[in-house]
């Protein structure tokens, strides 16, 4: 039996909105650690890893490890029916073929339950090695989203370069080219508005903007985003989920053959 009660139900709504464009079907894994997911996009270019730790739920019961295959578009449709202030409870029986989402309004005067069919999904679980990154950039998530959106109107790929001068996002297209440089800026009023660059070695990598733009659907989850880069390794774009966990997107670089 599985019963997970999340007081801030809007977090789950935002999580689904952030990943449903990238991944169609995925297995949600439930264990004593938490509610998690790992899935690749259909071209196997990007990977998303989600963790909502058990401590972040008001009530967390998971009698045995369970993997529940869900169509993310259908799950998002059901979660859209929850109010932003609603408490969401996820329920499932061991070996059952459905999952139930229960929504309670904050004043408890409206209680809904939506039952969704589960599906069998053959998914490969990848081992993600611990890596020392050459550079980690932390910046406002809205700024990163703006940069990805702006550059994608000029070109299809972005070159992200980190030097001691700052982080540079560059693109080229038929109509011209663009460069956006963000310098370290820690003297702002609020820490979430700072750009912090932690660089061990200069790094420069090329990525498809289409995927970067898809990752920025997670912007409502966190005021800040961290971008971890190492030469010739997938970039990690991480959005922390307040006191609960994270959504991490991994994207394979484009490499000169």
């Amino acid at each position: 039996m599985l019963e997970l009660r999340l007081v801030q139900g809007s977090l789950l709504k935002k999580v689904l909105e952030s990943i449903k464009e990238l991944v169609t079907d995925a297995n949600f894994d439930c264990s004593s650690t938490g509610f998690s997911l790992q899935a690749m996009d259909s071209s196997h270019v990007a990977l998303v890893a989600l963790l909502l730790r058990s401590e972040g739920f008001e009530h967390y019961r998971c009698d045995r490890n369970m993997s529940m295959g869900m169509n993310l578009n259908n799950m998002a449709k059901m979660l859209k029916c929850a109010g932003n202030d609603d408490i969401i409870t996820i329920k499932a029986d061991d070996g059952g073929d459905t999952v139930t989402f229960m929504f309670e309004s904050p004043t408890q005067d409206k209680i809904s339950d939506f039952e969704m069919k589960l599906m069998d999904i053959d998914s490969e679980h990848l081992g993600i090695p611990e890596a020392e990154y050459h550079a980690i950039v932390k910046m406002p998530s809205s700024e990163f989203a703006r940069i990805c959106r702006d550059l994608s109107s000029i070109g299809d790929t972005v070159v992200i370069s980190v030097t001691k001068e700052g982080v540079k996002f560059s693109t080229k297209g038929d109509i011209g080219s663009a460069n956006i440089v963000c310098r370290q800026n820690t003297s702002v009023d609020k820490p979430e508005e700072a750009t912090v660059i932690d660089m061990n070695e200069p790094v420069s990598l090329t990525f498809a903007l289409r995927y970067m733009n898809s990752f920025t659907k997670a912007t409502p989850l966190s005021n800040t985003v961290s971008i971890s880069l190492s030469n010739e390794l997938p970039v990690v774009v991480e959005y922390k989920i307040a006191e609960m966990g994270y959504v991490r997107f991994y994207l394979a670089p484009k490499i000169e053959e």
Partner: peptide, 14 residues
């Protein structure tokens, strides 16, 4: 020309 790599060439099945 830059070739798009796949994530599976960096991370292996666990």
């Amino acid at each position: 020309v830059n070739q798009q790599r796949q994530i599976t060439s960096f991370f292996t099945k666990s």
